[in-house]
Amino acid sequence: MSKSDVVLTLHHLTKTYKRSHLGFVKRFRGIADVNLEIEKGEIFGLLGLNGSGKTTTIKLLLGLLFPTEGHVEIYGHRVPHPFAQQRIGYLPEVPYFYRNLTPVEVLDLYGMLSKMHPKSLRPRIEEVLSLVKLDHAKKRPMREFSKGMLQRAGLAQAILHDPEILILDEPVTGLDPLGLHQVRKLIVELNEQGKTIFFSSHNMAEVEKLADRVGILVDGKLVRVFTKDNWIMKEGLLEEIFLQTLESSGVSLERPA
């Protein structure tokens, strides 16, 4: 992997949460000493159990959290940096929007904030809404949107400014099979355009179909990173690898009674 191909670098990234109560300070590990490089045009899937640190990692990439140690670089700029932020599109697990605004108004705001030119912004909003099949609802306030519509609106705002890197937090959670198919198709299309995709997920099947490389987080540590060569030969192999990795990291596979 040459340096010019690397777009996203996690360098000894550590996040420890502090909670104080009646003078006592408790520390919780979010993630610990995560090192990772993501190449341009790659689709990277981050797997882990609930509470393993997936969302923490994503928030650190976006500058919503500040690392306790280490740093994140995007195109060589330490996060948060306007150069980096302009090239990222982010889809949260559950997208929240201003309830009383319409999708057009919301996308107009996000487009302006992403420094898009006003002349190109309006046509792009129409294009993106059409792409995510929300053009029929463009003048409705967001409070009237269903969950699926909100997810699609989330995708719309993530791709509005044509970012080079897409960071997706559980992009297929809660979607019906049709929605799932549409999102998967969109991700593949975007990747074919040269975009780098970094996503986290529980959905093993989707990760198997989409990812070029997978990382497994266990208890805040990135214990294993491997390419799709490892599972491409056999369906369901990714789940086996995941469970084996958990076991070897000391996680009990038996659920408590």
Binding site: P82, Q86, Y98, L113, S114, K115, Q157
Partner: peptide
């Protein structure tokens, strides 16, 4: 609380 702030602060906005 509603997390609408995420989609603002992840943009190049001071």
């Amino acid at each position: 609380e509603t997390k609408t702030i995420y989609l603002i602060l992840t943009r190049p906005v001071n």
